[in-house]
Amino acid sequence: MTLTHPAYEQLRQVTPSAAVVLADNPSGMTLQGTNTWLLRAPGATEYVVVDPGPKDRAHTEALVRETGGEIALILITHRHADHTGGIDHLVKATGTPVRAKDSEFLRGSGTALTDGEVIEAAGLRITVLATPGHTEDSLSFLLDGPDGERALLTGDSVLGSGTTVLESRDDALADYLDSLNRLVAEAPGRHLLPAHGPDHADAEPVIRYYIAHREERLNQVRAALEKLGPKAGSLRIVAEVYADVDKRLWPAAQSSVKAQLAYIRSRG
């Protein structure tokens, strides 16, 4: 029987070269859980693992079981614990080097990932894209496989459902809009492989929705400032703009609003 999303701690083949194991860590922030992507061209003997997931032995055991421990490289999309917490368990089990943008997460012979770098591993060509906004160290990966297979792994920059929380730093939204524009330029003909939520056979419309949604939220924040006054704080804006959102998610919404306010106020 073909598995469908969500399928916890089971290997679900998505494209000829990309399979996913979904961690059993659902929440309001992680959606159904964190997707760990296992990349390997047909006929290759080793995998590239993208995001080992949370610190959860059952998840690590599932990754070792499904790969047979034959992992050439571990790549990290960004620093959050639901993506990086499982690093040391997986490294201990397999001895695999880990590469990330942030040196905190490097293991073994792994070196820091750089924008535009091309990695040849597991029979695949993987190109690194810097896509900050959700976090400053956020990366996405272009996957090019045999027979013209093309996919886009977006980490938390673009999810399979819902929208992305931004860091509260002043430049986060400007960075994020640049990242979305970069991703949409690469999206045509690529399968979307996000770090949370279901995959999508066509990445482009999902990313275009993200761009439109972000512009809509900006306009809502501008309208709230006109109503509440130009000095209104982020929490008052959240209560106005996100009134229909579960209040348990308001702290995350406040982070995004802080980034949007900084963006609006820096541009007059």
Rank of each mutant, 00 (worst) to 15 (best):
V20Q: 07
V20P: 00
V21F: 06
V21H: 05
V21W: 02
V21S: 01
L22A: 07
L22Q: 11
L22P: 02
A23Q: 04
A23T: 04
A23E: 01
D24H: 15
D24I: 00
N25D: 15
N25T: 06
N25G: 02
N25H: 08
N25F: 05
N25K: 09
P26A: 05
P26G: 03
S27R: 12
S27N: 13
G28K: 10
G28D: 14
M29Y: 15
M29S: 12
M29H: 13
T30Y: 03
T30R: 00
T30L: 08
T30C: 04
T30F: 02
T30I: 04
L31R: 09
L31P: 00
L31S: 06
L31A: 12
Q32H: 15
Q32F: 12
Q32T: 12
G33Y: 02
G33L: 00
T34Q: 11
T34G: 05
T34H: 10
T34W: 04
N35P: 08
N35L: 08
N35M: 06
N35F: 04
N35W: 06
T36A: 13
T36I: 09
T36L: 10
T36S: 15
T36M: 11
W37L: 13
W37Y: 14
L38S: 09
L38T: 04
L38A: 09
L38R: 10
L38H: 09
L39S: 07
L39E: 03
L39I: 07
L39W: 04
R40A: 11
R40P: 01
R40V: 03
A41F: 11
A41I: 12
A41N: 12
A41K: 10
A41P: 08
A41M: 14
A41H: 11
P42G: 11
P42K: 12
G43A: 10
G43Q: 13
A44T: 11
A44M: 10
A44N: 13
A44R: 11
T45L: 13
E46I: 02
E46P: 00
Y47W: 15
Y47K: 05
V48R: 01
V49D: 06
V50R: 03
V50C: 11
D51Y: 09
